[in-house]
Design a protein around this nucleic acid. Sequence first.
DNA 1: GCGACAG
DNA 2: ATCTTGTCGC
Length: 241
Amino acid sequence: MSIVGWRAIADELNPSKSTLKLELRHEHPWDVTPREAVAIQNRLRGLISLRDDLPETIGRVTGVDVGFEDSRTVTRAAVVTLSFPELNPIDSSVARRPTSFPYVPGLLSFREVPAILDALRTLRDRPDLILVDGQGYAHPRRLGIACHLGLLIDIPTIGVGKTRLTGTHGDVPDKRGAWVPLMDKGETIGAVLRTRQGVKPIYISCGHRIALPTAVDWVMRCTTRFRLPETTRYAHRLASG
DNA sequence: GCGACAG
DNA sequence: ATCTTGTCGC
């Protein structure tokens, strides 16, 4: 579908441009040096919960993705909420703001989270569960973008990466749903999951308030006939258009 | 010192 | 991520 078509759908999903009360559980500066960013990550890492702490019933799943415009000088975050288990889009939001932090492996959240928070603020309802494009716990300091975002807004999050940031793993059986642990320094930091037979596996890790097996289950429940979950696909289309 | 390195 | 045509395969 064309970009015009998608913008039309996006507006139709949330015509009132209603604002969601999104109180941040933690605050810290964003205009920081890479060195300061690392210090913030080391301070926040101890606050992450890898335990299941999700709503009793989840009727909606939300996807988040970020794209860039004008030679990466503008950051565009897209959030799409789908009904569950139908996986039909029922709400969405897009936010654009000047890019203020460079891409540095391991510090992705400092580049993308500010715009994501802007997008979340114009969503109609508070998400039950969010699938974030990128790693969560599978990070050098165990604070990938999914952990960072989930912790700030205190909502369960899952990291869904298309490629590896850190860690090692064996071969993944070529069968839908098969997965092997992603290991680092003797610890399981994530799962390498084959969402469909015959496609490259994706990297799943805990964000916040969810355990790894549960995270893998939810990613599979959100994945139909493609390599990536529908949440990620819808968000990507709105972020890139 | 030499690689590796989410998006 | 983004820049980009054609091309291999179901």
